[in-house]
Amino acid sequence: MQHGIRRRALAVLLTVTGSAVLVACNGDKPAPAVTTTVTAPAPTVTVTATPTLAATPAPPPTPTEQAAGKPDVVLTGDPDAAGKELQRLQKTGWWNPNKIEYADDPVTALQQFDRWLGKGYIAPGGGWTPAGEAAVEAANNGGPEL
């Protein structure tokens, strides 16, 4: 696009320069009229969309999750399996690392989730319940660890 603009600018420059040379060479004779029309291209607008998790609907919970109201958590010591379990829980909407900070290690994060879910600290959207918020506040003020 810039190449086309440069070409047009060069054409205008050459036309104006050529007109000036003709006037200088012709002396008192009037220079022929030169009309140049330059149209600039329309500006280009680029829109970049950022994908979000909300754009993809979560799959429906399994029958066990519906009956109990909470998802079943399969604990494992394998980091790969723990990562897959956390992904599954995230799809159900219960595990949301954007709302609650978990350990970086998937095995530890899965254990944290299971412990906090069992204590009733995690809400269905993946955030803290009121009891969870109270426990966090207490832990931050010297109370028992979560």
Rank of each mutant, 00 (worst) to 15 (best):
P79E: 05
P71I: 03
G69I: 03
P60A: 12
P61A: 09
G93T: 09
Q90M: 11
T62N: 09
W95K: 10
A68V: 11
A81V: 13
A134V: 01
P61I: 04
A123W: 06
A82V: 10
Q87A: 15
L75D: 07
V107T: 01
V136Q: 09
T129D: 00
G93K: 08
G127D: 11
I122L: 09
P71V: 01
R115M: 13
G77T: 15
L110Q: 06
A82G: 10
L89C: 04
R88V: 12
L89R: 02
T129L: 00
Q87C: 12
P51A: 06
A103I: 10
A109R: 01
N96H: 12
D80S: 14
A135W: 01
A54Q: 13
A135S: 02
A49R: 14
P97D: 08
G120F: 00
A82E: 09
T50G: 01
Q66S: 07
A123I: 08
Q111W: 06
D80N: 13
F113H: 01
P130K: 10
I100L: 12
W94D: 09
P63T: 03
A103G: 08
D72E: 15
G77M: 12
P97W: 07
T129P: 00
A103Q: 13
K91F: 08
A82N: 10
A131S: 12
E85L: 07
P60D: 09
D72P: 11
P130N: 10
L117I: 05
A49F: 10
R115T: 15
G77L: 13
W95L: 13
P71W: 03
P124S: 08
P97R: 09
V74K: 14
I122P: 02
P71Y: 02
A131P: 01
G69T: 03
T52F: 00
P63H: 03
P106H: 07
Q112R: 08
P106Y: 07
